[in-house]
Computed example of a mutant assay.
Amino acid sequence: MFTAEDPIVGIDLDDCRDPDTGDVDDDAQDIIDRLDSYTEISPSGTGYHVLINGDLPEGRNRRGHIELYDTARFFTVTGNRVDDTSGHVKRRQDALEAIHREYVQLHSEKFEPERDEHTSVRDDAKTTPTISLEDDELLKKAKNASNGPKFERLWNGNTAGYDSNSEADMALCCLLAFWTGGDTTQMDTLFRQSGLLRAKWDEVHYADGSTYGEKTIDRAIEATSEYYDPSPRNESTQSKLETGPETTVVDTDEPGRRNAYLLEKNQLLSTRVSELEATIEQKDERIAALERQVEDLSAEPSGQSDEDDREQGQRTGGTEDNSEALLKSY
């Protein structure tokens, strides 16, 4: 049972393993590899339990078949440890935060983009709006939006700031879901034109026969609660979105764009600060361990010196006894 007093976090991965063949879904394998801690097969045989030492990040703790717990939850322990995984529960704070951000928290209520007159909320996660934007027009709008620099970096294949290529793929697909209204065909077509495309995109990585690309698109649509609405509700805003780099217009909504930029920048900085704090904590633990090791090593020469003194005393005492014997003989 997880409690507030212990440092253990449990990651529950459901419906990701074929109990007959042992085949593992790509997402589950990615999480297991990155956490690199004690992992065992769940009682049903269709999932995994991973145990680590760490602090569960704030926000939601579950999405789809992935759940994370650190208190008020029971795990049935099978002892059926996965081959080639650690036999110890390790501290994995950085990996936990990255996985939480990528698989659970990404585009949740805490990270929703700034809304304007061209943003609509999708009430039903199973339906998406109809947006008829040609690829070139969509790319132009995406690059000129408040988070355009982020889109363009990902579009060009730049994964800086992401812990893995998979996380960068997911981030770009979430942006594409917003601009296409969740059109899976157009999302796939556009992603294949991006610098992030890899051979892995078309590889089958899931027990249901889905490819890595198909599952990434499905997850992105599920994670996206807002989409671009092309209906022109504000003339100045419409002009702003359609303005190219060589056109000058009076931007009456610049404060809103500025706020969106600052909000996103603050979120990225907060995430980076959290990662650095976790790194500092790990380094402090390492320094403390090294200081203890230094103390132990410092104590060893002292003990050896005492032993040497005793041996020297014995040798000196022996010499004095011999001297007295010689004097008596004279």
Rank of each mutant, 00 (worst) to 15 (best):
L138V: 09
G161A: 06
W155A: 13
A168I: 01
A207C: 10
A168F: 09
N156I: 01
Y212F: 12
A125G: 03
V121C: 01
K110C: 01
K140V: 01
L154W: 05
P113W: 10
C173Y: 02
P113Y: 07
R198Y: 01
H107D: 12
T211Q: 03
L133D: 15
E134R: 00
G157W: 13
D183T: 03
N165D: 02
N158C: 07
Q193R: 15
E152A: 15
K141M: 13
P149F: 07
G181F: 04
E226T: 08
F111Y: 12
G195V: 11
T130D: 06
S146K: 03
T224W: 00
E203R: 14
A145R: 15
Y162T: 03
W201S: 14
Y228N: 06
T189I: 06
K126G: 04
G148Q: 03
R198I: 03
Y227V: 15
D208P: 11
D169N: 12
S132E: 11
R153Y: 00
E203A: 15
Q186P: 04
D116V: 08
G181S: 08
S108V: 02
R153Q: 08
D188G: 08
Q186A: 14
D135L: 01
D136G: 05
L172T: 04
C173A: 13
N144V: 05
G182V: 01
D169F: 13
H205S: 13
P230W: 04
N147L: 04
K143F: 12
R233M: 07
T211A: 10
N144C: 00
T211D: 11
Y206W: 13
T130G: 03
F191I: 11
G195Y: 02
N144I: 02
T189P: 03
L175T: 00
E109W: 05
E134K: 00
D135F: 00
I131W: 05
L176W: 11
A125H: 07
K110L: 13
I131G: 03
P129G: 04
E167K: 13
D136I: 10
L139S: 02
H205A: 11
N156V: 01
R233T: 14
A145H: 14
H107W: 12
A220R: 03
K140D: 15
A125R: 05
S166G: 09
I221K: 15
F191E: 09
G195H: 08
S194Y: 15
M170N: 07
